[in-house]
Nucleic acid binder design. Structure first.
Lengths: 69, 69
DNA sequence: ATTAAATGTCAAGTATTTTTTACATTTTTT
DNA sequence: AAAAAATGTAAAAAATACTTGACATTTAAT
């Protein structure tokens, strides 16, 4: 896939605004804390399913959390 | 990840409404026709980056194309 | 009816995400 | 200050996305 375009996100900010810990969020979307950390930290490109679940839990549009640059 | 929740999509319909072939869409998002076919056919869980690019090209929200059930 | 374009299938290999485990550091609570 | 909770780092294995190539079938165009 296009290597020049990088996926970024505002997950850390939004998660904290909502008042969830990484572990709580991980639990709510049935993934691990590691995966949440990887998304927040690294320029990591999670699956669409995971992005959708996160957006549902945080009550945001996918585009409000994830964007390409 | 949660195996009970499956990612589905309306890509085939939306792509045809917009009037793009699989190959054209693939080119526009810098992927291969195989990947487009896999998304349309199989219950395939593409990356968030790819989902976002597709949604940009088709001028739809990610949620209009992809959803979980 | 023939040709061309679009779609579908298969398989193998590569790249990346996700899980699991374990420990270190920082921040918050008491 | 001590304990508890939250966050960070690392690394290996497992699972899955993505690529490449080649061919079959269906649909649209001439």
């Amino acid at each position: 896939m296009n290597k020049e375009i990088v996926l970024k996100n505002n997950l850390k900010n939004i998660r904290q605004q909502v008042g969830l810990s990484q572990e709580e969020l991980a639990g709510l979307v049935s993934t691990t804390r590691q995966t949440i950390i990887a998304i927040e930290k690294a320029q990591f490109n999670p699956s669409t399913k995971l992005a959708l679940l996160i957006s549902l839990v945080l009550d945001k549009k996918v585009e409000e959390i994830f964007y390409v640059e």
